[in-house]
Design a protein around this nucleic acid. Structure first.
Length: 486
RNA sequence: GGUCCCAUCGUCUAGUCCGGUCUAGGACAUUGGGUUUUCAUCCCAAAAACACCGGUUCAAAUCCGGUUGGGACCGCCA
């Protein structure tokens, strides 16, 4: 175990934040970042702040913000402050921007985008790292005034001084960057149009963020943010860069790897507790062999010192396993409520659905599978595949006989005894007489469900009821007796 | 290409800080077997990894150096 120790953090000192930009749905990576921030804050009785980084007027969309908020709530990741909006804090950023400009720590840059793009391409072709060439850094105040009065478009750049920027990353240890390689980077489009790096630094300072916990993709932004902090005389928060969540090809998980929006997982019928449990173990683990953790128990165990350095591949089959586990743990009543949107059928009583859920509970990996698994309960006529009705090497005549036997045996079961226990008893007695149980059980199940895999036919027959069960037996017999169709 | 980061079973990982108890543990997935037909559950079992090369040491998955491999970033996005 690595020896970073947080037990000296006093309650109330920890303030973390999740600062998504509403330019897309909340994806798994973002949710995991939010989770770790939440966990860390709760663990240390601190505050977890939600801040919407909507400085980009064009790309930020209210529907994305709604998706982020809804998804977070659904997962149970509650924030103690916010959501704050960067867009409503333009005055604040302007104040600091003015200060930077006045102190000459930032300057107006009038270079056109085309000009910059050409430089970028050139640097790239030369194998050089792109950085601004500093053309406007030396502009005299008078020239700036003139260009400004002419309404020439400009942006604001940070004046980088050459030095080594180092910081201690909580998960990675000491990380260093040479600031001369960064160059004079942009911090605002205009005085009231801050860019990400400036807004983050100002907000983290004003919101007294103690720990910046974010994905590794931001590690290269950190020296820029530290430079701004130092220019503004802000204290430096602790940084923790989380390993990336990877797709199966080991590149950063993205849309092309399939579903990655939390809301998609929700639609597919994953349970929030399963997703949380699963995400927590992407890049972190509590050390023991226990793998099932609720949100509160995660809070108890969580620590940044056990965060992994390497990226973690997102493994759906593991998620499925965990989801199946949580599905099995649910009470039938609660599970049925959750399943309601997934049944195709309408006008069916809750109790009826509940019976179905009860026999399919242990077979479910995600709620969305329910519809296809149980559609035969809601259909009048089933389409039988003749091949499916035959058990092993049975011939059609034999199958027909089985249906006759079945009808004979089942007709003896009284309506009041039509339940899975007595059906099991009667059918097993009959099956044991024959020896090969599949000989009657298999055609029975196929007749009732039309499927090669299902819950036990006794359970199905009970739910279907005596009348429907006999109807299906007759239909199946007709199907097997039919001449054409293999 | 530059900068930065990373490296234990197919995957998530334990073990690495403080070298010996590691013939490397668990879980998912896979395969085989069992539990009243199928599927699933549950149980049992199997197969499966310290990237490589050097160094330090009595001893290295663990420390050091290098190599290789992988990834992230390189915007007037965040």
């Amino acid at each position: 175990m690595r020896s970073k120790n947080f037990k000296f953090i006093k309650p109330g000192e920890v303030r973390t934040r999740f600062a998504p930009s509403p330019t897309g749905f909340l994806h798994i990576g973002g949710a995991r970042t939010a989770l770790f921030n939440y966990l860390f804050a709760k663990k240390h009785q601190g505050a977890f702040i939600l801040r919407i980084e909507d400085t980009d007027r064009e790309r930020s969309k209210p529907e994305f913000e709604k998706d982020i908020l809804d998804s977070l709530k659904w997962l149970g990741i509650d924030w103690s402050e916010g959501p704050y909006h960067a867009s409503s804090r333009r005055d604040v950023y302007a104040k600091y921007l003015e200060r930077l400009l006045a102190e000459k720590k930032a300057y107006r840059c009038f270079c056109s985008e085309e000009e910059l793009e050409a430089q970028r391409q050139y640097s790239l072709s030369q194998g050089q790292p792109w950085r601004y060439n500093g053309k406007c850094a030396k502009l005299a105040p008078r020239e700036i005034e003139k260009k400004l009065s002419e309404d020439l478009p400009s942006i604001i750049r940070f004046r980088t001084t050459a030095k080594k920027v180092e910081f201690d990353d909580v998960v990675r240890g000491r990380v260093g960057f040479e600031s001369s390689l960064i160059g004079d980077f942009s911090i605002a489009r205009d005085i009231r149009e801050p860019l990400y790096n400036l807004a983050v630094v100002v907000d983290d300072f004003e919101m007294r963020i103690s720990h910046v916990i974010r994905a590794e993709e931001h590690i290269a932004n950190t020296p820029k943010q530290i430079l701004i902090q130092e220019a503004l005389n802000f204290p430096r928060p602790k940084y923790a860069h989380l390993p990336l969540i990877l797709g199966s090809d080991r590149s950063k998980l993205s849309k092309r790897h399939g579903a990655e929006a939390v809301s998609d997982f929700r639609k597919q019928g994953y349970l929030p507790e399963a997703l949380v449990n699963f995400m927590a173990f992407l890049g972190w683990n509590p050390g023991g062999e226990r793998e099932i953790y609720s949100l509160p128990s995660l809070v108890k165990e969580f620590g940044l010192e056990r965060v992994q350095k390497g990226g973690a591949v997102f493994n759906v089959s593991r998620l499925d396993f965990i989801n199946g586990f949580y599905i099995r743990k649910k009470s039938v009543d609660k599970l049925t409520k959750l399943c309601l949107p997934y049944f195709g059928a309408k006008n069916v009583s809750f109790d009826y659905l509940k019976k179905i859920v009860a026999i399919y509970q242990e077979r479910l990996k995600k709620l969305s599978e329910l519809k296809e698994l149980t559609d035969f309960f809601f259909q009048d006529k089933l389409n039988y595949d003749k091949k499916l009705l035959r058990w092993k090497q049975m011939g059609d005549r034999e199958v027909e006989q089985v249906f006759d036997e079945l009808e004979k045996v089942l007709s003896k079961v009284k309506a009041k005894d039509w339940n899975k226990d007595s059906l099991t008893k009667v059918l097993f007695k009959e099956a044991e007489k024959i020896g090969d149980k599949g000989r009657i059980l298999w055609p029975l199940r196929v007749a009732l469900t039309g499927k090669e895999a299902s819950a036990p036919p006794f359970d199905v027959a009970e739910i279907l009821g005596k009348e429907k069960t006999f109807g299906r037996l007759k239909d199946a017999k007709k199907a097997i007796a039919a001449k054409n169709n293999v």
